[in-house]
């Protein structure tokens, strides 16, 4: 899977902000991420909760395009993922 190349080998750290986009179709999870990543301090982590299959690919792709590191993607027990992004600038 392409995303694993950018995933870091580290413990999932407690996100400073969690965006609940469960049940929302792409591009909404990414729009919300772009709108709110500025709310956390530099180097803090934002978690996007999403269950649209497109988010699994698109959040890491957004990270690559916008130069914010994709920390990792973790499966949620109730389905979907928590996708962690570190604010880089």
């Amino acid at each position: 899977m392409p995303y694993s190349e950018t995933a870091r080998e580290e413990q999932p750290r407690t996100p400073s902000l969690t965006i609940d986009a469960l049940g929302k179709k792409c591009p909404i999870p990414i729009i919300w991420l772009a709108q709110r990543i500025g709310e956390v301090p530099l180097n803090a982590v934002v978690a996007v909760l999403a269950d649209d299959p497109a988010a699994y690919t698109d959040v890491p792709a957004w990270c690559r395009l916008k130069s914010h590191p994709h920390v990792g993607t973790y499966e949620l027990p109730e389905g979907g993922w928590s996708i962690h992004v570190r604010r880089n600038y």
Binding site: Y3, E5, C26, P27, A54, T57, D58, A61, W62
Partner: peptide
């Protein structure tokens, strides 16, 4: 295809 490439699938 877009998934396998790891590029944006929306828009």
């Amino acid at each position: 295809v877009l998934e396998a490439m790891g590029v944006l699938t929306h828009g």
